[in-house]
């Protein structure tokens, strides 16, 4: 963001999330630059919903996002790796038990 700061008046980066229709989650679709959150919303509408792709938009300053690090991927997600009993397929139920 500050490659040529001072020369150009750079706007911060916002990440854009769209709800494509009612009943669905917002999904990350990309990013854009804007001076403030209101302008980011307007730009997101023009950029990501030119063909009715969305009914609701979230914009979030990219600097406000905390992400897990790929370098610690294995240990970070390890707690769920060895708990097969959390899945319904872990349990054997005879075929003749109905509605299970």
């Amino acid at each position: 963001m500050n490659g040529t700061a001072g020369v150009r008046s750079d706007w911060p980066l916002f990440e854009v999330f769209l709800r494509s229709k009612r009943g669905l989650n917002h999904v990350h679709v990309g990013s854009l630059h804007a001076a403030d959150p209101q302008m980011a919303l307007h730009h997101a509408r023009d950029l990501y919903t030119r063909r009715n792709e969305g009914v609701s938009i979230w914009v979030v300053p990219a600097t406000e996002i905390t992400a897990s690090s790929p370098d610690e991927k294995d240990p970070f997600f390890a707690p769920s790796g060895d708990k097969v009993y959390r899945h319904p397929t872990f349990y054997e139920i005879p075929d003749d038990v109905p509605h299970m």
């Binding site: 150009r8 750079d10 706007w11 403030d36 302008m39």
Partner: peptide, 9 residues
Amino acid sequence: VREAAAAYA
């Protein structure tokens, strides 16, 4: 325009 918008923000 970019400068004015940044100043306003």
